[in-house]
Amino acid sequence: MTNEVTADAEEKGETVKADPAQTHVDTQWQTPSPLVSCRFDPTGKYVVVGGEDYTLQRWDLTSGTAISFKGPHDSWVRSLGFSPDGQTLYSGGYDGRLVWWPASAETPEPIRTVQAHDGWLRSLSVSPDGSQIASCGNDRLVKLWNAADGSLIRELVGHEHYVYSTLFHPNGEILLSGDLKGVVKQWNIADGSCARDIAATPLYSQNSGQGVDYGGVRALSISPDGKYLAAGGLHKATNPLGAVNEPLVLLVDWEKGEVVHNHVTEGVNGMSWRLIHHPDGYLISGTGGGGGGWIMYFNADQDREFFRFQMPNTVRDMDLHPDGIRIATAHYDRHIRISRMISKPA
């Protein structure tokens, strides 16, 4: 992936570099139901979204036309992933199912369905070489699947609470998973052993007045240089049942396993739903909640964001296009929005 692209190549042929300060909504499409997830495909041709109506839609970024994926899910699809070549789409649902799809087929039919988890499948991640899929869920398990045939390779047991997020390290040897109580586990993929726990406990809170546990590691990202792990979620949860909380991203020194920065977004009510490190090194956080939808940009050397961009509606998921310029955001108001980190066309 490169951040140097030919922006509006079809029109201008100019090479441009992503500039977060220029972020603007370029395109939006309305979908049949409130959205809960979104991902760009690695070829950069499509964005796929999951909605509260249990279906998936594939939007062609050029033509703006959509095709629905209807099939085995009978719950919300909250997690999506692609094989590195973009040929296979993986969807994970709150029905516990993991489904293989032909990503670019004209009339997509499921290739394979696995009952992956007992209860919600909350997150999935595809290994850098595409050979394995990791999934995690409310059964407190992390599972590794053979992408080629859907067989279970290994169960990773150790989380004591719901597992909210999982992510392959870019080196392909390590898997990360984060749970409700703010524990991030580092797993060795080769043998399934847990190398260490990384404390992200500020992302969890227990409200005794309301009698609820709240928070969790909602998002994970590794910096391009491998020096940092980012874990996202929320803090300052003074009223969990009323959505009164603020986003928090913990930046962890990878070697030491210690938090070096608390990326806070003061004055914004909500949580970080997705984290992605841009190839240029900064961190992008898709944030949504009572304070609306925001894209926040953080550098590794400071707590506060260096730029924030407000979206027209709350953000529930986010992805970065392979061009490093476009950002997709999934919204409650039934829209998928494509933003660009370059100046608006004149």
């Binding site: 969990p240 049942l241 009323g242």
Partner: peptide, 11 residues
């Protein structure tokens, strides 16, 4: 508590 204006399903 079931006064779940937020994250009704998780709670």
């Amino acid at each position: 508590n079931y006064d779940t204006h937020n994250e009704n399903f998780d709670f």
